[in-house]
């Protein structure tokens, strides 16, 4: 059984930071790929992406997003009991970026701080980890930071962002329902083979590879199995969403917004159609923000529905999926929460 319900947790707000540098998939594209870009953009649904500058880290954006969140919520820093960071773009291989951020944010040394190594699926897992600590009574207020620095000039998919979500104990909060899953047998669908202990960096990895199209790639780049990811996403996610709804005894009509990981339009549209969901209930940030990895759920909330959520209570279902393979979702009631506009740095 992968389904859970946790009581007394309130999602108090979300703040998101993105780079102000915008890459256009049409214009910032190698000339030899220009002809095929129209068709590509039509199918993946990504026109623009955000890219951090070379000297910036994910944590620099996480810092700004978290500062903004704390300010909006009116929290005192000494009240923050935990800071959990979900990223695959750490400052260093060790220690955890969360611990470095504890200091940069000026949080108390009693703060619980650690990283979780998850990507596009991570948001629900992070909510569950923090939610469990709150439900157990060990902490009262915590921040979940999520995102990656994954944009590259060549890939038309990935885009950079960092987001911070505030959670706190609330006696009156309705339960948050979770569905969390893992399948390591499919890990090669999305992985970075080089740089760990299975294949440490060596001289070979600094030699570029010239592709048939004349473009240079590197041996340590992310490996993506497109058909494998497509099959995983469109076959696993729709039934998982149904399971979560059934477990919670909440009907799809009662859900105001279904926020899915923003993978690409082909995947997202297929999931939407298989679940028979109307477009207006499935907000998308793909067109202007691309695939922002784990940040894609909170970024979509910030940029597409934040102002709507601030006006009155809503019920949302979020579902992330990707590298691992890992997939997880949640159903939460959002009420009296803060959603400031995205910060551009």
């Amino acid at each position: 059984m992968t389904l859970f319900a946790l009581p007394h947790i309130k999602i108090s707000g979300i703040a998101t930071a993105v780079p102000k540098r915008i890459l256009s998939n049409t214009e910032d594209c190698p000339p030899q790929l220009l002809n095929e870009r129209g068709r590509l953009i039509r199918n993946i649904g990504i026109q623009n992406r955000r890219m951090m500058r070379e000297w910036e880290c994910f944590s620099d954006f996480a810092l700004v997003a978290t500062e903004k969140l704390v300010e909006e919520l009116g929290w005192r820093k000494e009240e923050i009991d935990a800071l959990i960071v979900i990223t695959q773009s750490p400052d260093y291989l060790l220690p955890s970026t969360a611990i470095i951020l504890q200091d940069r944010l000026g949080l108390n040394q009693k703060t619980i701080a650690f990283d979780i190594n998850l990507g596009c699926s991570g948001y629900a897992f992070g909510l569950h980890v923090i939610g469990s600590m709150i439900t157990a009574g060990s902490i009262k207020k915590a921040i979940l930071v999520i995102g990656d620095k994954s944009a590259t000039m060549n890939s038309p998919l990935f885009s950079d962002a960092a987001s911070a979500t505030g959670l706190e104990f609330d006696e009156n909060a309705k339960p948050i329902y979770f569905d969390l899953n893992s399948d390591g047998s499919g890990f090669k669908a999305i992985y970075k083979p080089v740089g760990g202990h299975r294949e440490p960096y060596g001289p070979l990895h600094s030699v570029p590879v010239i592709g048939e199209n004349g473009l240079i790639s590197w041996r340590d780049e992310l490996v993506l199995d497109g058909p494998g990811i497509m099959n995983f996403s469109i076959q696993r996610i729709p039934p998982a969403v149904i399971n979560l709804l059934n477990y919670s005894k909440i009907t799809r009509e009662e859900i105001d917004f279904f926020i899915f990981h923003q993978a690409n339009k082909m995947i997202n549209e297929t999931i939407r159609k298989k679940l028979d969901l109307p477009l207006e209930k499935t907000p998308s940030s793909l067109l202007d923000f691309g695939n922002t990895s784990g940040a894609s759920l909170p970024l979509t909330i910030t940029t597409q529905i934040g102002q709507i959520l601030e006006k009155k209570p809503h019920k949302i279902l979020g579902y992330g999926f990707g590298v691992g393979l890992s997939w997880g979702g949640f159903i939460a009631d959002i009420s009296d929460a803060k959603f400031p506009p995205a910060i551009e740095i």
């Binding site: 095929e36 068709r39 590509l40 199918n43 993946i44 199995d225 497109g226 058909p227 494998g228 497509m230 099959n231 469109i234 076959q235 082909m266 297929t270 159609k273 298989k274």
Partner: peptide
């Protein structure tokens, strides 16, 4: 006929033929 087309065909098989095909 490229990797993007292959993804489109995989979706087509799933939606119209209720079949999962691999790369």
């Amino acid at each position: 006929w490229d990797s993007l087309a292959a993804l489109g065909v995989i979706v087509m098989f799933d939606m119209e033929y209720t079949k999962a095909i691999t790369g």
